[in-house]
Write a protein that binds this DNA or RNA. Structure first.
Length: 444
DNA sequence: CCCCCTTTTCCTGCTT
DNA sequence: CAAGCAGGAAAAGGGG
């Protein structure tokens, strides 16, 4: 009996992890698959496709407004913090600080070619936020106010758009998030009332020929390692600080920098931070840890690098235990290969180094660190929870070259892992999984 | 091409 | 009601 017929056959489902260990036994192969998948989990940011799919109600071209801070009237500041848990606090200074940083960031992220994913919400009126932007905002705020991560249920915001949230009463917020809904309602209202929108003033990266020209020349003629950064003027450094988020791209696994509209490859595995580049830039890395690479197996195999999968799991660079970093063997390749501009889709990991490296943008690193698509529930025992199930599925699909992947299907595959001990069942808890006895590598 | 195993796709039914 | 979970069934992928 035919149980059903397939209705849509997806094309292009070739290229399994190409070089992937033909010699490995099937078990091991699967094991690496699941680990690859966890890698993707850890790589944090949602794929562009997901963003777009969530963003259908809003044309990016309309995306022309951004906040500008304005004076905050003391009487407008809510005192919700007093009524809430002691971990929340907000005063006028904080709010002013916050709004001004938002305005600041907007200037930076404008024209960022989509790479400032996590802060897209700062570029739009809240009514236009997609579900992802709502989620990003929620996690940003949660981190900013250092909310108790065990009580904060950011995932509950993942199906809300900005316009939906605009229509929600305070009680609705509390239904979504019993612990902090009240606070989030206030924050949301406040954001809307204490911000105004103005026409953008696009950043012209070529405005100052000295800055971009100097760096472009350096890139052409030397590797980063050889570069004497002291020759770069303070002005240039400042320009880089301000614009690297938009200039960097690692979407295809090869780090690139955009100078004057042209993309250049360069090797940054060793350490961007020694150039005092803000964490925001480093955060664009898929790995976030030791530079770039490894996120995309196809690219890696194309580069002759067969180490696309997990090499190790470590949490040494983030102080909180929600971080998982998957490092891969260093790449020995690709220095200063010039490329023509192409708008690739945005992949982006958002691991962050350490807050102390953040210059002038203190939230960025904190925020991005917080914005995980998964969360460790019990790292010792390998228990984790998906925060954004569909985003995780999209990442899985990307790895498998299968844009049709959904959490529904991914979860079915994961259920097969139970029987084989790669995952253990965790009963009664949605989106929670646990590594089983036949898995390894997830724990340092 | 076949065999075999895993993953994907789709579904029904049930739970939260 | 929506989102997840559990598995059955079958097709697709992919290695050997």
């Amino acid at each position: 009996m035919i149980h059903y017929m397939h209705k849509n056959i997806l094309p292009l489902k070739n290229s399994r992890q190409s070089a992937k260990a033909k010699q490995l036994e099937s078990f091991e192969e699967e094991f690496t698959d699941i680990q690859d998948y966890i890698i993707e989990m850890a790589s944090v940011c949602p794929p562009q496709s997901l963003y777009e799919s969530f963003n259908t109600d809003f044309d990016g071209d309309q995306d022309l407004s951004f906040y500008e801070p304005r004076d905050v009237k003391p009487e407008k500041v809510h005192d919700f913090a007093m009524e809430n848990t002691s971990s929340c606090s907000m005063d006028n200074a904080n709010l002013l600080d916050l709004t001004s940083q938002i305005g600041f960031k907007q200037e930076l992220s404008y024209q960022d070619n989509g790479q400032g994913e996590l802060l897209r919400w700062t570029q739009k009126h809240p009514d236009h936020w997609s579900t992802l932007e709502v989620l990003d905002w929620a996690y940003y705020m949660a981190d900013y106010y250092q909310l108790d991560g065990s009580k904060f249920r950011g995932e509950n915001y993942q199906s809300l758009t900005g316009s939906m949230m605009s229509r929600m009463a305070q009680s609705d917020f509390q239904r979504y998030d019993p612990e902090f809904g009240h606070m989030f309602y206030d924050l949301f209202q406040q954001l809307k009332s204490d911000s105004k929108f103005i026409e953008p003033s696009p950043v012209d990266y070529n405005a100052d020929p000295d800055t971009s020209a100097v760096f472009a020349e350096l890139l052409k003629n030397s590797t980063l390692e050889e570069m004497d950064m002291s020759e770069i003027s303070d002005q240039t450094s400042k320009m880089l600080d301000n614009n690297l988020v938009s200039m960097l791209d690692v979407s295809d696994g090869v780090p690139k920098v955009n100078i004057g509209g042209t993309w250049y490859d360069f090797e940054v595995e060793d350490d961007l931070s020694r150039f005092d580049i803000p964490v925001t830039a480093i955060a664009m890395s898929e790995n976030g840890d030791h530079g770039y690479g490894s996120g995309d197996s196809d690219v890696n195999s194309e580069l002759g690098n067969d180490h696309s999968r997990l090499a190790s799991v470590s949490s040494d660079f983030c102080s909180d235990d929600e971080s998982v970093v998957f490092s891969s063997p260093p790449k020995k390749k690709t220095v200063n290969r010039k490329r023509t501009f192409s708008s690739t889709s945005v992949d982006e990991g958002c691991e962050v180094e350490d807050n102390k490296n953040i210059q002038g943008q203190p939230f960025m690193g904190i925020y991005q660190r917080f914005a995980k698509r998964y969360k460790w529930e019990d790292k010792e025992n390998g228990v984790f929870r998906f925060v954004q199930s569909e985003a995780v599925a999209q990442m899985w699909g990307r790895k498998k070259n299968n844009p049709g992947m959904t959490y529904e299907k991914l979860s079915r595959a994961m259920r097969y892992y139970y029987k084989r001990g790669i995952l253990d069942r965790v009963d009664g808890r949605r989106l929670v999984y646990k590594f089983g006895p036949n898995s390894h590598g997830w724990k340092e």
